[in-house]
């Protein structure tokens, strides 16, 4: 299949970028990233600069791949990362727009690669349970309701890719933050530090320059792990309660 790609090229964080046009001959069984491998092979052979894009596990779990395809983070398929998107979902002759995750809090490093370290700083501000190695009691000492553990897992399945931010018209990080808050809040072990965690993670999120959530639910629709926006409601509730009731 012959494709026309409009790829966002930007030499570095300072420069201004623009869409460049390329033609690629792809196979319908390729993954989207394998199609980009073909493009880069062409570019290098022609003496041009290959397109920088982030990728690693190529099985949908590491969260490294991060491009916006035809206006949608990770492309057109629900619950699918870019690396698991296959070319059979495109047609011969298609034009495909590829650009980085756009958000002020995710500055572009090069081409399709952005700096998502803001997410790390948010986790560092409180996205953990304070337990040193060796301090744990027996694993079965506290029973956790099956459904509740399962709900915690659904939130914890977040891969930290940032698609929620890229999808959001406001570049809000609420789905990411609320997923971590929810995961830990739903486990009894996480409840001790819950109030403090909510306050400091929201505070850090604001400092990073993400936008405000306006409940468009674009994040939920585009999340490759299909994390529910119910988590955002839980974060809103927790934030209000912890603000009003903490000492």
């Amino acid at each position: 299949m012959k494709l026309n790609l409009k790829v966002w090229r930007q030499a570095n964080g300072q420069g201004k970028g623009k869409f460049e046009s390329y033609n690629v001959d792809a196979d319908e069984h390729m993954s989207f990233l394998e199609m980009l491998d073909v493009l880069n092979q062409q570019l290098i052979e022609a003496g041009d600069d290959p397109v920088a894009f982030e990728h690693d596990c190529r099985e949908g779990i590491c969260g490294a791949c991060s491009m916006v395809i035809n206006g949608r983070p990770h492309g057109p398929n629900a619950g699918t990362t870019t690396c698991q998107l296959h070319m059979r979902f495109f047609k011969d002759g298609d034009t495909i727009h590829i650009e980085p995750f756009r958000a002020d809090a995710f500055p572009v490093i090069k081409d399709l690669v952005v700096d998502r370290s803001a997410f790390d700083r948010i986790i560092e501000s409180g996205g953990y349970i304070s337990v040193n190695t060796g301090q744990a009691q027996d694993a079965n000492a506290i029973p956790v309701e099956k459904e509740q553990a399962s709900e915690a897992f659904d939130a914890a399945t977040c891969i930290g890719c940032g698609a929620c931010v890229a999808a959001c018209p406001n570049a809000s990080a609420m789905l990411f933050v609320s997923a971590k808050v929810s995961h830990l809040a739903l486990m009894p072990q996480g409840q001790v530090e819950h109030d403090k965690r909510v306050q400091s993670m929201v505070n850090q999120m604001d400092l990073e320059g993400f936008g405000n959530c306006s409940n468009t639910y674009a994040c939920e629709a585009e999340c490759p792990k299909e994390i529910s926006a119910d988590n955002i409601a839980r974060l809103n509730r927790s934030y209000l309660i912890s603000s009003l009731t903490s000492d």
Binding site: Y128, G134, A139, V144, E145, K146
Partner: peptide, 22 residues
């Protein structure tokens, strides 16, 4: 055995039975 204890204390959402145990 200590690993499982440690991970549960960190909040790792392992699969559980209806009784709430691992």
């Amino acid at each position: 055995t200590h690993i499982i204890d440690q991970c549960v204390a960190q909040g790792v959402p392992f699969a559980r039975e209806y009784g709430g145990l691992l």
